[in-house]
Amino acid sequence: MANSDNSVSVFAPASIGNVSVGFDVLGLAVKPIDGTLLGDVVTVAASTGNDSLTVIGRFAEKLPSNKEDNIVWSCLLLFNDALIAAGQTPVNVALTLDKKMPVGSGLGSSACSVVAALAGLNAFYAKFQSFSFDENTVLKMTGQMEAQISGSLHYDNVAPCYLGGLQLMVPDVNVISRHLPTFDECFYVMAYPGIEVSTKAARDVLPTSYSRSDVISYGQNLATFVDACHRNDKQQAFSVLTDVVAEPYRTSLLPKYQESRDYLTAQGALAVGISGSGPTLFCICDSESQAEQFALWLKENYLQTSLGFVHVCKVDEIGATAL
């Protein structure tokens, strides 16, 4: 059984994978301005019995009932292997996953669980066992878990979820991710329609090769966006927030996306895109009043089931955090 006096809880926030212009290499952590915890919480407690996992929360029933099939349990096994490799002895723990994030939403749902679990375990050992892994080691573990889930190694959700802010993935295993400057005055409207889109299905619909013109456009847009971020040039940054890699092929998977995108763009949104592999839509706004106006429109026109929601968000610069 768990001992609540010997526990830590870590929250891991939602993220926008790709951010339209950076397929698999850009990710942005977001948080609702009303204080809602949009993400997952994992509590790690000392246990007097065997290791255990309990799943609670609004979206708990969407996860496998068998703990061995839950990614948080897989995180525990990976973390324990890493402890043993580091000469440490794992202790028995009771894990609780509070699944606040919808599965297959395009908000980094699996990344939230993975980051909350691994950061939670690391915080638990730091507090009670006087041992912890460094940030880069934990980040590599989150990447391992994401690769196990999706079949390919990509950090565009786990890096911002863990580190916060806008992250650019770099081809250096000792660095992995660089923090890019963001535009503090901007608001991000996140609209989850309440339907699922499998990440695998969203990847399968993509072509296996791209034209030279698409490759040039992708490189030019991404480079221009990164440069504009560093120069704090908001208009330049969002003028090139165009997805030539995934959105043209994924739009057909997302009911009401195209008309919503067209409407919001016509109404003056800085940019509109698909969050990760969808179906969540993100809309970037200049002001809170504009964001609230668009949020109301999306609630009426983009949501498709009772599970859907819309949040007005800002950038979450903190990432995974102890509660």
Rank of each mutant, 00 (worst) to 15 (best):
V114R: 03
R58Q: 14
N18V: 07
D243N: 07
S217Y: 05
F282E: 04
L241V: 01
G17I: 00
G278C: 11
Q144P: 02
A14H: 04
S113M: 03
M190F: 05
F131L: 12
Q236L: 15
Q220H: 12
P32S: 12
E68S: 13
D286E: 14
S213W: 01
S211M: 11
A45C: 12
L253Y: 09
V170S: 05
V91T: 14
L307Y: 04
F124S: 08
V21Y: 01
Q258I: 04
G278F: 04
F309V: 05
S7Q: 13
A82E: 15
C229E: 02
F59Y: 15
A295N: 06
A45P: 00
G151T: 01
F128N: 04
T182F: 11
T54C: 13
D214E: 12
I16W: 00
L77M: 13
C229P: 06
C75L: 04
P90Q: 11
A2M: 11
G104F: 00
M1Y: 07
S105N: 03
T36D: 13
I318Q: 15
S7F: 10
S260W: 06
V226P: 05
V272Q: 03
V91C: 14
L83H: 05
G108F: 04
V170T: 12
T242N: 15
A269R: 08
E146L: 03
T137W: 06
N157W: 00
S105C: 04
S277W: 02
S277R: 01
T182R: 00
V175I: 09
T251V: 13
Y257K: 05
V175L: 05
N66W: 07
S74L: 09
K99I: 08
V21S: 09
A201W: 01
V41E: 11
K100Y: 06
S130D: 15
G22E: 09
K314G: 15
Q267E: 15
V93Q: 09
Q167E: 09
L95Y: 03
D134M: 10
T182S: 14
N174P: 11
N122F: 00
F128C: 03
E288Q: 15
R58N: 12
K314F: 06
L296E: 14
V41N: 05
G219S: 13
G17V: 00
Q235E: 12
F133C: 10
L97P: 08
V44L: 01
V103S: 13
A295E: 07
K99L: 10
Y162C: 02
D156A: 10
G17T: 04
G165F: 04
P160Q: 01
L253I: 12
V30W: 00
H311K: 14
Q290W: 02
A111K: 00
S211T: 13
I274W: 00
E135R: 15
S110L: 07
L206C: 11
A29M: 05
V72K: 12
T321L: 08
T48D: 15
S213F: 03
R231E: 14
G278S: 10
T142Q: 11
P248M: 05
L206F: 08
L78C: 14
L76N: 10
Q290K: 14
A147R: 06
T251P: 03
V175M: 01
Y155N: 08
F183P: 04
L26A: 09
L298E: 01
F23N: 03
